[in-house]
Amino acid sequence: MFENLQSQFILNFVDDDRWRYLVNGLLVTLKITFFAALLGLLIGFIIAMIRGAYQGTGKYRLANSICSLYLTIIRGTPVVVQLMIIYFVIFGSVRIDKSLVAILAFGINSGAYQAEIFRSGIQAIPRGQYEAGRSLGFSYKQTMLTVIMPQAIKNVVPTLLNEFIALLKETSVAGYIALEDLTKGGDIIRSRTYSAFMPLIAVALIYLLLVLLMEQGVKLIERRLHKYDKR
């Protein structure tokens, strides 16, 4: 039994340096997750500000409608389909780096969810905070920047980090555009060795480890954020 496992291990990871598929795949996964999270952060923040400004002041009517449409489409369709549309339709006739496409697709997708997270964070701030800011003479924008956003961001950081964890796992469908991420890397090994157990379990363990690490990070940050809340 043990010898069997050992020979399986050698076959799947050591022979022909197959472990490289996992390492290279992991790097690709980390890269697209990181940049997609950043892109999503930017998109989410901008959308939340536009929608908030529209609700608060009635300005940016057109921009608000565009944002609503964007949210509806992105949240109403699967991310795999969006990924394939961007790669095969939008960039169908252009040669383009696949990781860039993946970053775009996952960033645009995550942005929609992050926008909602920001919005709920802003809405959770009592109206009196906004009124106090305005009553001092701060403009809408100044009130948002000095009073509302610092509090809202503190509220949303844990939820946002959980969104990043979800994003990490979602990028596992990047193989649909033949991008060799972690999942695809394991799958390539499986197709070479005709054994599924080792490579897939290894892939699963690596994801699990990453998620656990990120969750620890969330806890640490949460604790630091709430240091000043105690009476």
């Binding site: 009592p126 009196g128 009553s135 003479g137 809340d229």
Partner: peptide
Amino acid sequence: RQKMGMVFQQFNLFPH
């Protein structure tokens, strides 16, 4: 508004 100070029932100090 800069010339009109306002005090609220719920204080509304900025907690952060």
